[in-house]
């Protein structure tokens, strides 16, 4: 076959198991894993670990639930539109437990609106558990945890419809959002809801910043989730990530200095697997 680009032989695995260039990837994951394990272990046993500082706007979650309670109207939670294999959806799970518990405590109706069947199932479980832990299993209504549609804009239309009909007082959106972010936030804003939006989707964040009362930017959703839940695994992970960021910052500083004083040097790139 003449059109084939028979250029190179298949790469030989390093140490017999790693595909080319992936040793450093594995080392980083392993290193991060060790830091996380140490931090989680310390958090579990009550030993001292760095504390996650309060994130601006996070207390707004309780404020929003409080306002909904006063008005006797529901709190809506939307965990984005991606499935359970997306880290942002996992961050939403961390927050939903806190929100559902608060709603159960104050006897405020809690609506969770889902676009993907798997988060729907998980959130139903978490909410049921939250109501149980608050001693209000009778108040849990499975019909308030809803799967609307897997089609993005059908889901959006359905949520807007619920906003119009059920008039929630608070709308909390945490997770991976796409084009629906603007439509949902704008409709909520017109309805006068107190809104909290958080996502790591850069293109959608401006709409949350513009239309929501409080917004969580990017990684703040993971930290917020850990801060609220105080769950050792999540807490330890966020602390460990801070350590990783310090290491990365140092690498970038060294890399930039090397690039300035010795532009031809590839030492650091070679150490980082030749990327």
């Amino acid at each position: 076959m003449m059109w084939l680009l028979a250029q190179e032989q298949a790469p030989v695995p390093t140490l017999g198991i790693f595909s080319a260039g992936s040793v450093i990837d594995f080392a980083i994951v392993l290193g991060l894993g060790v830091i996380i394990w140490v931090m989680v272990a310390r958090a579990r046993t009550g030993r001292k670990i760095p504390e996650i500082k309060k994130i601006a706007g996070l207390e707004a979650v309780d404020e929003a639930i409080g306002r909904a309670t006063e008005m006797g109207r529901p709190v809506v939670f939307i965990p984005g539109i991606l499935s359970v294999d997306n880290p942002q959806t996992l961050a939403a799970f961390g927050m939903v437990s806190h929100i559902a518990r608060q709603c159960a405590r104050y006897d405020t109706r809690f609506l969770a609106l889902n676009c993907d069947p798997l988060p729907y199932a998980v959130i139903e479980e978490i909410t049921r558990q939250a109501y149980l832990e608050e001693g209000r299993p009778d108040a849990f209504n499975p019909d308030d945890i809803r799967f609307l549609s897997a089609e993005q804009f059908a889901f959006t239309g359905a949520v807007i419809g619920i906003f119009e009909r059920e008039r929630p007082a608070a709308n909390i959106m945490i997770g991976a959002f796409y084009a629906e972010a603007m439509m949902l936030a704008e409709t909520g804003s017109f309805q006068g809801m107190i809104q909290i939006g958080g996502t790591a989707m850069t293109a959608q964040l401006p709409f949350f910043v513009a239309a929501c009362d409080y917004s969580l930017i990017g990684e703040e959703i993971y930290a917020a989730s850990a801060y609220l839940s105080k769950e050792p695994v999540m807490y330890g992970t966020v602390v460990a990530q801070d350590w990783l960021k310090i290491v990365l910052a140092l690498i970038i500083v060294v890399g930039a200095v090397l690039a300035t004083v010795s532009p031809d040097s590839t030492v650091l790139r070679d150490i980082l697997g030749g990327y």
Binding site: I24, D25, A259, R269, L272
Partner: peptide, 16 residues
Amino acid sequence: PAVWLNQITASFVALN
């Protein structure tokens, strides 16, 4: 990791 390692090395910019 492979994807963001590339992004990190791309940020080794000469400060000139």
